[in-house]
Write a protein that binds this DNA or RNA. Sequence first.
DNA 1: TTGAAAGCGCTAACAC
DNA 2: GTGTTAGCGCTTTCAA
Lengths: 356, 356
Amino acid sequence: MRRTTIRDVARRAGVALGTVSHHLNGSAPVSGGTAARIEAAIAELGFRVDLGARSLRSRRTHSVGLVLPTIANPFFAEVARAVEHALWERGLQTFLCDADGDPAREKAHLDALLSRRVDGVLLIRSGPRPPRLPGGPGAPPVIHLDRARSGAPSITSDNRAGGALAAGHLAGLGHRRIGVLAGEAEMPNVRQRLEGFSKALSAHGLDLDPALVRHGPQALALGRAAGDLLVRDRAATALFCTNDVVAIGAWRRLLELGVRIPQDVSLVGYDDIEMGGLLVPPLTTVRQDTARLGQEAAALLGRLLAGEKAPRSTTHIAPTLVVRGSTGPAPAGASRRGRRKAAAPPDVQSQERSGP
Amino acid sequence: MRRTTIRDVARRAGVALGTVSHHLNGSAPVSGGTAARIEAAIAELGFRVDLGARSLRSRRTHSVGLVLPTIANPFFAEVARAVEHALWERGLQTFLCDADGDPAREKAHLDALLSRRVDGVLLIRSGPRPPRLPGGPGAPPVIHLDRARSGAPSITSDNRAGGALAAGHLAGLGHRRIGVLAGEAEMPNVRQRLEGFSKALSAHGLDLDPALVRHGPQALALGRAAGDLLVRDRAATALFCTNDVVAIGAWRRLLELGVRIPQDVSLVGYDDIEMGGLLVPPLTTVRQDTARLGQEAAALLGRLLAGEKAPRSTTHIAPTLVVRGSTGPAPAGASRRGRRKAAAPPDVQSQERSGP
DNA sequence: TTGAAAGCGCTAACAC
DNA sequence: GTGTTAGCGCTTTCAA
C-alpha cells in the first residue's frame, strides 16, 4: 500500500501540492481557510512528512553523529545524554556511534555518517591522535569533544586547571608525596592534567616524583597499580587519578590492602561520575560539567550550521573541585619518612568476610 | 559547489549511470574492465553514495531507533552498546533517543523516528504501560526490549527465573527473613521478579513478608530504605534489590549504619552492572546478558525486515546468578535451624588474589 | 496567495 | 552486460 504523501494531502484538501509544502514549512503565507483544509486532510489521511525526501531537496538531514570510544564508560554516557538532549532541543537527532576504542571502527563510522549526509559530527576520538577526516566540499563540520584537536573546533574541560585543582587541594592538606595513576602518556588530556597538576605542585614547593607516576589504559585495572605507589619509604600519602573509573579501581584496591581512606591515603579522581559519590568514603574529584559540554557543543554546531566559520581555537570549560570524604590531612610524620601506620585495622576491613 | 554524484562517476568512467549503480549494489553483473574504470572514477572524484537519496528509492534507510529511559543508567548504557554493535554488524545505524523517563518525550521521539522512516524501532519504554504506537501501513516494526509487551515482539530477561534465582540462593544460605527493595509495583518487570522470588521462597517453606517490601522508583534513593527493613524484631537478614543501582544505594546505606555485609546482612542485586563487582564486598547479583539481548534484538529485527511475520510472544533470556561476596550464611540464631554450613560462599580475598 | 514544474541523487524495470 | 528512463516525496523557483 502506497504511503500517503504530500500530494495526497493536496488532492484531498483541493489545493496544489506546493501549497501544502508551504504550509508545512511556513515558507510562504497560506490563507486561513486553506490552512485549515490542509490540516484536516493531514489528520484524516494520517499524513507524516518523509524527512528523508525532504533532506534530499533541502540538503539538511537534521541529524548529527556522535562518535565516542564507548557508551559503556559512565563519563561518556553522561556526555552522550547531555549531547542528545541539547541537540534534540535544536531539532537535531543523534546517531550513536560506538567506536569501541578502535580507530578503524571509528573511521568506518565516520564514513557512514558522511554518506548519510549528517549535518554535523561530534567526535570524542578513540585514539591518541585525531583521525584523518574525510573532508571535501560539502563535508559536515566536525566538533572535537573532550579530546581537543588544535586548529579545529573543540570543546573540552580545562585539563590543566583541573589538574591544578587536584594538586592545590592535596598540597593544602599537607600531602608531600603524591602518587598519580595516569592514563596513557600519549593522551593529550592526560598530559595536560598532569602538567597542571605538576605545575601547581611546584607552586607549593613540591615536586612530582616520576617514580610515583603510573601510566596505563584509563580503566579499572589501572587502579590496581595503587598498591605499587605505597611501598616502603617511597610511600605516597595521596593519589591523584586522571579519571574516576581509575580512582574507583584504586579505591577498591586500597580497601583490599587494608589501607584506610583518607586516614592513610587520600584519593582524588577526575570527571565526577555518579558512582564516585557513592563510594564509602565518597570520592573527592575534579568535576567536568557534562551538561555544559553538551550545550556548548550543540550551540557551536548551531552556529556553524548557520554559516559562521569554524573557530580554530578550543573552548575550555572550567572544571570544579568537589571535595568529599576520600581526602583528608596528610598523616602526621608522613612527609619525612613516608611511613604509614600499619597497626590500626582499617574500618572497612571488618566488613570483609574472613575465610570459612 | 555541487556534490559529486553517481552521474559524474558514470561520465568519468564512460559508462551509463545505471551501470554505476549496478556496480555499487551488485544488482547486476558488471564486466571486469568496466568495474575497474568505475572504481577509478570513484577514487579520482572522491565520490561517496548519498544514502538518503538511496533510501528514498529503495525504501530502506538502514537506520533504527533505540529509545530508552536514559542512557545515564549503566544498565541501559550496556544494552545500548550491545544493541549498537549488533545492529552495526547487520549494516544498521542507531539513532539514540533518550526519553529521559518521560512518556511524552518518548512519544515525540517515536514520531520523529517514524518520519525518518527508520527500518525499525527498539524500545525500552519509560512508563509502566506501553505507549500507543503510531501504526499504519508502512510503519516500521517495533521490538520491545527489557520491558516486554504481551502480544508484541519482545525480548527480555526471564524476570521470574531471575527472582527465583535470588530467592533460592538466599534461602539456601539459611536466610528466613528477607527484605526486598523493589521498583515501582506497576512495572511488570518488578512484579515478575517479585513473583519469581516469592514463589521460590515458598518452595523453601518461606513467606515473603509484605512488611519487608519497599517500593519506589528504581534509583539510588530507594536503597536508603534498606535501613527501615532492619529494625527490631522484624529485622531482615538479607535484602534482595530489583536492580543493581538500588543495591548499590542499599550497600551505601548499610555501611553508613555500620551494618556488616554479609555478616549481618546479605545483599543481592539484579542486572550485574560493572560497578557492582567493584564494591567491597562485591555484589552478588542476578546477571542479565546484555550482549545477548542486543544480539537477539538485532537478529529478530533482521528477520522481521526479511519479511517474517512478527512473533506475538516474548523471547526470554535466561538470567544467571553471580555469587560474589555480598551474600553469606544467615547469622546464627536468625534461622530456626540455627547456623548451618551452606555451600561456602566465595570470599573476596581468595577471589581477588590480593597482596602487596 | 496559489499553482505548475523542475529537480535533489539514486534505484529498478526494462530495452537493447 | 549495458544503457534508458521513470519515478521515490519533497522543496523551491517562477508565473499567474
